[in-house]
Nucleic acid binder design. Structure first.
Lengths: 310, 310
DNA sequence: TTGTAGGCGTTATCAC
DNA sequence: GTGATAACGCCTACAA
């Protein structure tokens, strides 16, 4: 302990927790800091957590770590947390409802001051400090992307190009962000939009597309760029050229979208802002400040996978 | 506290920590559990950590959460940890050396029982319980993929096809896994392999490829599938057909590799096994058992981006 | 088979 | 401006 290196005991606490402002002499403070540095002393987090009842850790629960969209979200959240002196504990629910409940149990027992749920519906009784990402349970703080606008931009783009038979390849996840896409399309195109769903897996998305193609759409709007990749696969299999025979629009603007052949037209969003925003809202909640839900802007990136129908 | 709901106090501890075996009567145990359930009582992790000196948390430090390879690694690690009752705290170093030091500091102060460093060189004095992933510092436990074999498989494949001018598009990260690829290539092809490096970014990989093409290779081996994507971009820009004019081999077999046009020949590895293996080794270390480093097998997946040179 | 008591390293309150 | 001292909630001897 630094106590014997210095002269005192609770003084150390005052100094190291930054609460010595105007209470500890500059000289004593220097001595303490020096001793701490020499001994490589660090306050014990567990003891602090026990005493203060705060863990300086937040939990992030995510449906699927494997999805490329998730990385930047985590980066945003983690960096914002880092700046605020918080650690991020991560739970991957792996699309498994059982694990979802179980992992939440674990987290609740854990030393987290709050939680962010990414594309996961927060369980009942998650406590006060919860923010939902890309999900918007009533009465709960949330951060999400302007899905409605994104869908509208994409569909209007297709409409402007002259398409009339537009299909929808959706995620099979029953999350709000995806339900919104359905509604937004219905608002523009009516209720009889050809619709198939698939998990975020190229091959499965490919077979779902094959089913969708039976309705002979001239364009397909996809809930996500991976699903769009499945459309590319299906088009290749059927000998359909993109965009001549089939226009494709994705969502997310994942990095590989520009590498696809042809480069994918897609709705771009800023995943880091999503993560960072979620943490900031959570921090407000933790600090007892009023937390405002946020809706992040989107942008349509027109590349070469869309063209007028033949 | 469940104490008053039941009858006792330390009895609760015995029951809930599973150490009541043959010491607590079945009836008492039932009473305690019932009371705990009713009150929604959970042992306080901070107190337990303080008392036992163990946090049941491990840290995972990663160069770049944004890389698609990372997701499955985390999933493997997280699930193995989950099964063992551990939480995973994550730090994204974001390719930033400053943050690397700083985040480590934070972790060390944090309540982690051990660390996994993924493509990050573990700092000095990280303690006893450290395992390196895809890095192999002398005298430290590590888990990595059989890079040598993967590189050899890829290069031999190209050689068998009849290629003689084989270029190497490498990662600009100075990590062991990438140095090994250089050495393995040199062993098969000599020291004058055309070589360029790039970060894991399609556009930058594209411009690096453009430089590499000045040596007029008929095939390019890439350290990673994202870099291979950059080669596709460059080929498109130069009007080179893959594989007729240029063969391309990647590494990792990321999901999108099969969606590229043409589908990418690449070295497949199992990222989940990497993460899970790392945690298992770490758990051995934490448990005071001898930890064996592991080398995971690889496999060459031949798709359509490789063909004999014209 | 169960209860009692002490201490893990902090922070916070209160004397000095 | 600084030093005692009491808790935070748990685990673990040890006593009953």
């Amino acid at each position: 302990m630094a106590r014997r290196a210095g002269v005192s005991q609770s003084t150390v606490s005052l100094v190291l927790s930054g609460k010595g402002a105007g209470r500890i002499s500059a000289r004593t403070e220097a001595v303490v800091r020096q001793a701490a540095a020499d001994l490589g002393y660090r306050p014990n987090v567990a003891a602090r957590a026990l005493r203060t009842g705060t863990a300086r850790t937040v939990g992030l629960v995510v449906t699927d770590v494997t999805h490329p969209f998730f990385g930047p979200v985590l980066r945003g959240a983690q960096q914002a947390a880092w700046r605020a002196g918080y650690a991020v504990a991560l739970v991957d629910v792996a699309n498994d409802p059982d694990r979802e409940r179980a992992s939440f149990e674990a987290l609740r027992a854990g030393p987290a001051d709050g939680f962010m749920f990414f594309t996961v519906d927060p369980p009942e009784g998650s406590g006060e400090h919860v923010v939902a990402i890309e999900v918007q349970p009533p009465g709960m703080a949330s951060v999400r992307v302007d899905t409605d606008r994104g869908t509208e931009l994409a569909v209007r783009h297709l409409l402007d190009l002259g398409h009339t038979r537009i299909g929808h390849l959706g995620s099979w996840l029953d999350a709000e962000t995806f339900r919104r896409r359905i509604d937004a399309m219905a608002a523009l195109l009516g209720d009889d939009v050809p619709y198939e769903t698939a998990p975020f897996d190229y091959r499965e998305a490919c077979t779902a597309t094959l089913r969708l193609l039976e309705a002979h759409p001239t364009a397909i709007f996809c809930d996500d760029d991976i699903l769009a990749g499945g459309v590319y696969l299906a088009a290749r299999e059927r000998g359909l050229r993109i965009p001549e025979d089939l226009s494709v629009v994705g969502f997310d603007d994942l990095p590989f979208a520009r590498v696809f052949e042809p480069p994918l037209t897609t709705v771009a969003i800023d995943p880091e802002a999503l993560g960072a925003g979620a943490f900031e809202v959570l921090l407000d909640l933790i600090g007892g400040r009023p937390a405002e839900s946020r809706v992040l802007p989107v942008e349509l990136v027109v590349r070469e996978s869309t063209a007028p129908p033949r």
